[in-house]
Nucleic acid binder design. Structure first.
Length: 516
RNA sequence: CGGGGCGUGGCGCAGUCUGGUAGCGCGCCUGCUUUGGGAGCAGGAAGCCGAAGGUUCGAAUCCUUUCGCCCCGACCA
């Protein structure tokens, strides 16, 4: 939609009689890209840096979400035996060029440092777009024997890719991520690692982000530059598009050969190691936004919400205020004791509670906390004090729980933990339902063109003849790409058929959708 | 990087065509009154009009260049 269109959507889009136009978030149904930006902005997650092209500032509320993602994932990596390390931001250009496909893939988006300290560098440095090469260099030094394997390393870092088009969280020039790099003695072991970490990502996405994902294998065209195989998790966004939310690569011996990473096997033979790499990025924050949020703004699952509950005191005079604040403080203290740590987590997660004593009208505060995605709102006023109750409102209505609920204080406190956990589950269920409702099985090209007409997109299971030509032709005509060939259990069971485009034989259906 | 749109107090915009030295709403600060879904009144602060050149007595406005953001496309987490 044009800028003009955006403005008009905003002008007519004010809710509640349109009297608060400036504060309104564009509607998903009217202008999805504008809606996404509004949610990110009003949710105080991030803003464009502007002074640095294509970069964003992740604001405290957004960074807190990333910290929660990091904390949980980091624990999962430790559970799988990986150890954190840190490699240089700058990578000698000669490293990047060592692996043929890798250079080809990344050359167009490299930022390069050519001078420092006022003098031209003898060899320019690339700002890492990813670290396979420099880590390959060090693996070669660290690995001598099969006894050094497997080597399981993870790095939390920033990377830079000179993107032509950026969108906050989904694609920025600089982004934060985690990159795992492992070396193994056999291809079987490396393949198992690729799958193991893919499942770590998939479980994390569903359990923590409440974001359902399809696990699958990338086609050759979509594969990571330098990998022999790429597995991925693909998430469903509310506009029907797919978001590649995480990837896990089988690097074969490509980087082993390029960087001479050899080990002496039990047999005594010198062999190249088998490597993997896998990563997820701050893009996940964008995925969470587009999975759960609504026209009122951001929606955050409790497991990644920086604040779980906002308490809004309500009163008419100072005497009432004093009494209400006592109760509010008491409830805040009690809630703050509640431990919502996931089972077997390596961290403790206690309820974060905000007591909102700002001098604003309650209604304004309601909107404010809704825009920030806070799962639970508690109102406490004189009427509640009289009855010994609290008023509870969950950010998103579900089948089980909707609207305001009035609960005896003790009962609320006793059930608050479970309510949050149920809410987490409910968000996942809602997201699953949305994905299911927008997932179709298509058999004819006519249906296909209809499904993907204009800007529209769904998750479509279609037969594909397995050729890159067909893949390219489909993309060319409809902008639809093959997101993945599903792993067992994540798509229709393989059954032979005919390609939706070419009519040639196909072994199984693949996931097709437009993508971010 | 191509096509289109847009840069004016924090946000949303008017003013630009037809040059005369900047305005509105919201927000912000102070005070009083308010407070169960976006409060009211009064007073106040805040903008070298994205930037740099140029034309002119005079530029937000005209011309050139440049930077950035948004949308669409090609490339990609």
């Amino acid at each position: 939609m044009s800028q003009q269109g955006n403005k008009q959507a905003k002008k007519s889009g004010g809710k509640k009689g349109g009297k608060q136009r400036e504060l309104a978030i564009a509607k998903r149904s009217e202008d999805y890209p504008q809606w996404y930006q509004d949610v990110v902005r009003f949710g105080e997650l991030a803003e464009p840096a502007k002074v640095v092209k294509g970069c964003m500032v992740i604001k405290p509320h957004g960074y807190a979400v990333w910290e929660k993602i990091q904390r949980d994932l980091d624990g999962r990596f430790k559970d799988t035996g990986h150890r954190n390390a840190y490699f240089p931001l700058l990578v000698p250009m000669s490293f990047i060029t060592k692996e043929a496909e890798h250079v080809e893939g990344f050359a167009p988006e490299l930022a390069v440092v050519t001078q420092a300290g006022g003098v031209e560098l003898e060899e320019p440095y690339a700002i890492r777009p990813t670290s396979e090469t420099i880590i390959g260099h060090f693996f070669a030094k660290w690995i001598d024997s099969h006894r050094d394997l497997p080597l399981l390393i993870n790095q939390w870092a920033n990377v830079m890719r000179w993107e032509l088009r950026t969108r906050m969280f989904l694609r920025t020039t600089e982004f934060l991520w985690q990159e795992g790099h492992t070396a193994h003695a056999s291809h079987d072991e490396a393949e198992a690692e690729v799958l193991r970490m893919l499942n770590v990502y998939g479980d994390f996405a569903e359990q923590v982000l409440a974001m359902p994902v399809i696990r699958g294998t990338k086609t050759a065209t979509e594969r990571f530059a330098g990998a022999v195989d790429t597995k991925c998790i693909e998430a469903f966004m509310q506009d029907g598009k797919a978001l590649q939310a995480g990837t896990s690569h089988d690097l074969g011996q490509n980087f082993g050969r390029a960087f001479d990473v050899k080990f002496q096997a039990e047999s005594g033979e010198l062999e190249y190691v088998w490597q993997t790499s896998w990563g997820v990025s701050t893009r996940l924050v964008g995925g969470v936004v587009m999975t759960h949020s609504d026209d009122e703004g951001l929606v955050l699952p409790p497991r990644v919400a920086p604040i779980h509950a906002a308490i809004i005191p309500i009163f008419r005079n100072d005497e009432q205020k004093a009494e209400v604040m006592v109760a509010a403080e008491r409830i805040k203290a009690a809630l703050s004791e509640i431990d919502i740590s996931p089972p077997r987590a390596r961290y403790r997660d206690f309820l974060e509670v905000a007591l909102d004593d700002r001098d604003m009208r309650p209604g304004a505060k309601f909107y404010d906390w809704e825009r920030r995605g806070v799962p639970m709102r508690i109102e406490i006023g004189p009427k509640d004090l009289e009855k010994g109750q609290v008023c509870l409102k969950m950010r998103v209505d579900t089948e089980a729980v909707s609207g305001k609920q009035f609960l005896p204080e003790a009962e609320f406190l006793a059930s608050a933990r479970q309510r949050l956990l149920d809410y987490q589950d409910a968000l996942l269920a809602l997201a699953r339902a949305r994905m299911a409702a927008n997932t179709v099985t298509l058999d004819t090209w006519e249906e296909f063109e209809q499904t993907f007409a204009g800007d529209s997109s769904k998750f479509a299971w279609c037969h594909w003849d397995g050729t890159a030509e067909t893949e390219a032709a489909i993309k060319d005509k409809t902008k639809v790409t093959i997101r993945c060939v599903p792993l067992p259990g994540y798509g229709p069971a393989p059954e032979p058929g005919v390609c939706i485009y070419s009519g040639k034989p196909s072994a199984q259906r693949v996931l097709m959708a437009k993508a971010y």
